[in-house]
Design a protein around this nucleic acid. Structure first.
Length: 716
DNA sequence: GAGCACTGC
């Protein structure tokens, strides 16, 4: 959860600081601020149990901490442990977070509380950004990044303590990390027995590593210290974590949350959007002042409720029209997202129409009323067909609690659940962990690279279905990442595991080095790794279409993406030659994106991925190559890489996916939507109203048996 | 002629 520090607002203090020219006053300001911070720290619920917590960590190798919202566990516990001497011998306390922003903001906050420069004693590390140094002792990071670190140092020997925060969210990364940490802890506590096998397997699998470690050295250094694990969760049920860690002790830390009155409907609501609308106005007309937060499932619902609210406001008497709507969802440009955080003009009530983003990712101040229709849009994945879809399902009890909690951050609040109380008891306790509803290829590849060969026997906290694991193993085998005995292959499997990409994309890069089109493929995998690059606002559909046409390639979407990337790079090059500062260059790129209906955030992300992967493949010794204008060569490489995603045209114009025999359509957003090529490869299979394939390129069907004989030879 | 909750390396 995104922490908020209401008592002391950084920006306000900085502003005050700027106003004061006098240095003496400035010093007083600094002193006053330090005093405030100290007071704030002392007032946190966790402060009163510092000694007890430190004692429990000393006594137990694994500790579960159930900390309610506002307990201060994330910022304070690492400081307690540091002060208690857990960083001797240059050891580090690592704290993982599921989200990047949380890692950054908490690290900044703790650095300030410790009165140190960020990146020194207190730092953070997230993808594309490392604010740590050799003196860092308290390190905040994303859980995915710690998993990557484990590939280089499987015993995580630099850490004396690892704190896994927000474990109740059960992201894939958290779940894999918990399984790994359990193994690492065992290996570090019994260096002579368990550790040996574990290390050996790892060392063997990573012979090509330039930074390869010596197994002996690792075991020697690990012998001296065991690894302390602290699992922090906000869910009231610590049992599952405790059981998983062999009956680990769980302690409870109180939070600071105001009471929230929960109200239910008498009857189930047949139309939850209408019910939401009615509830908004019921609150607006009958309840005391305070902003409203309504949870909806997606952009479309938010836009439609927003329209309906506006219509109804106009029908109200003049004195009651003081209601303002603010939408917030992830794909909304950040400038517009900021509107949700601005206070409503005086005399107005604000109603925020939000997706799940407001459940954990952002904390909006001033919320007194929450409307919860009890539904959420969730990703589901079918391992047999490889089909992804988004479905609307009921929330879990934990999610409902999380949502209602949003009304009690600053004072007592009310939550209106738009279903009867009897329905609440029927909800599942917690959300199905992500690991049970996603493609596991990446997880399996990483575990293999960590020397864990028996994936089906791996001690997951909650085991994914056997089918899902088998399908991933099969896919990795077909990509050449696994050898005949299902061990990580050398060098292909090892190289693939090093790249932070979907395994199919990693393989594409390795092949592109052979096909001499590495430059083009690097652009394509970076662009395919981000959310959609093109932006189609409803009101400017024609202009957007024209803009995209200027990048279009008749061969398909992959080359179109290369064209977009190169055009954007050209725009940046131009501003570079005119000696622009970095900020100005970004502004120019932003402007270019708006003119060309490109999503700036996505392109920025793609550029970051591009440069990160470029670094990796240089380190791995691949020489740069470009196919120039020879796009045939590039399409052949696409075929060799994505042969598992090939489809043939049917007489009726639909397509049949060759691996699963499903009938699919080319998505209307594809440049090949009208072309109807005989044979295509694609990168995404999504079910909405129909089965759609997206990111499509036309290929020659004869290339399939030629370039992927391991899969197609028998058919041809 | 469609539509995409949210994260992450």
């Amino acid at each position: 959860m995104m922490p908020s520090f209401p008592n002391i607002s950084t920006s306000k203090n900085q502003q005050d600081g700027r106003k004061l020219a006098n240095g003496n006053c400035k010093n007083q300001q600094v002193l006053a601020r330090r005093q405030l911070i100290l007071q704030h720290r002392k007032s946190l619920p966790i402060a009163s149990v510092e000694r007890r917590l430190v004692e429990e960590v000393r006594k137990n190798d694994t500790l579960i901490i159930v900390g309610e919202t506002g307990s201060g566990k994330t910022t304070q516990l690492p400081q307690f442990l540091y002060n208690a001497g857990f960083c001797h011998d240059e050891k580090i306390i690592g704290v993982t977070q599921p989200r990047r922003v949380a890692a950054v903001t908490v690290a900044k906050r703790v650095a300030e509380e410790c009165n140190v420069e960020l990146g020194q004693k207190v730092g953070y590390s997230i993808r594309f950004e490392d604010a740590t140094s050799s003196s860092t002792r308290i390190k905040y990071m994303t859980d995915g990044l710690l998993l990557r670190e484990a590939l280089l140092d499987p015993l995580l020997s630099r850490y004396s303590i690892i704190i896994v925060d927000e474990a109740h969210e059960r992201t894939v990364h958290t779940d894999v990390l918990l399984g790994l940490l359990k193994k690492v802890q065992l290996a570090r506590s019994h260096p002579t027995t368990n550790q040996h096998n574990f290390i050996k397997a790892n060392a063997k699998g990573r012979e090509d590593e330039p930074r390869s470690f010596s197994p002996l050295k690792a075991s020697e250094s690990a012998k001296s210290t065991s690894l302390k694990l602290i699992i922090m969760s906000a869910s009231l049920d610590a049992r599952c974590f405790s059981e998983y860690f062999g009956g680990a002790k769980a302690v409870h830390v109180h939070g600071r949350q105001y009471p929230v009155e929960v109200l239910y409907t008498y009857q189930p609501e047949p139309d939850y959007l209408d019910a939401t609308l009615i509830t908004i106005f019921q609150i607006h007309l009958e309840e005391a002042s305070g902003d409203i937060l309504a949870f909806l499932t997606g952009q479309e619902e938010i836009e439609s409720v927003e329209r309906l609210v506006h219509e109804r406001i106009r029908q109200l008497p003049d004195g009651s029209q003081n209601l303002l709507t603010v939408p917030i969802y992830a794909s909304l440009p950040s400038e517009q997202q900021m509107n949700a955080f601005r206070p409503a003009p005086s005399g107005f009530r604000k109603v925020i129409l939000a997706t799940n983003i407001a459940e954990t990712s952002v904390t909006i101040p001033g919320i007194k009323y929450v409307i919860d229709p009890g539904l959420v849009k969730a990703r589901s994945y079918n391992p047999v067909t490889g089909m992804e879809s988004l479905i609307i399902i009921p929330t879990s009890k934990a999610q409902a609690l999380q949502r209602s909690g949003r009304a009690g951050r600053e004072g007592p609040g009310k939550c209106f659940r738009l279903y009867p109380e009897s329905e609440f008891s029927k909800l599942t306790d917690s959300t199905v962990p992500e690991i049970k509803r996603c493609n596991l290829s990446n997880v399996v590849l990483q575990l293999k690279a960590l020397g864990i060969d028996d994936i089906i026997g791996f001690d997951f906290m909650e085991k994914p279905s056997r089918m899902a694991i088998v399908k991933s193993l099969e896919q990795l085998f077909l990509l050449g990442a696994l050898s005949d005995d299902y061990k990580l292959s050398s060098p292909v499997g090892q190289q693939m595991a090093r790249l932070p990409l979907d395994p199919m994309y990693s393989k594409a890069l390795i092949l592109a080095a052979e096909f001499k089109c590495l430059e083009e493929m690097l652009i394509v995998v970076a662009m395919l790794s981000v959310e959609s690059i093109f932006y189609f606002p409803r009101e400017k559909m024609e202009e957007a279409r024209a803009a995209r046409k200027s990048f279009s390639s008749p061969e398909g979407d992959h080359i179109t993406l290369v064209n977009v990337y190169r055009a954007s790079a050209e725009c940046l090059e131009k501003s570079k030659t005119t000696n622009c500062k970095e900020k100005t260059m970004e502004k120019k790129l932003n402007k270019w994106c708006r003119e060309n209906f490109i999503n700036y955030r996505s392109l920025r992300h793609a550029r970051d991925i591009h440069s990160q992967i470029e670094g990796h493949i240089q380190q791995m010794g691949f020489s740069p190559s470009s196919c120039g204008d020879d796009m045939l060569q590039f399409r052949r490489c696409l075929t060799a890489s994505f042969f598992l995603n090939a489809a043939m045209k049917q007489p009726d114009g639909s397509y049949r996916a060759l691996s699963s025999s499903q009938i699919v359509q080319v998505h209307p957003s594809s440049v090949l939507f009208r072309t109807k090529a005989d044979c295509i490869i694609f990168n995404e299979l999504v079910r909405t109203n129909q089965n759609y394939v997206r990111n499509v390129t036309r290929v020659d069907p004869l290339w399939l048996p030629e370039l992927a004989p391991q899969y197609y030879a028998a058919d041809s």
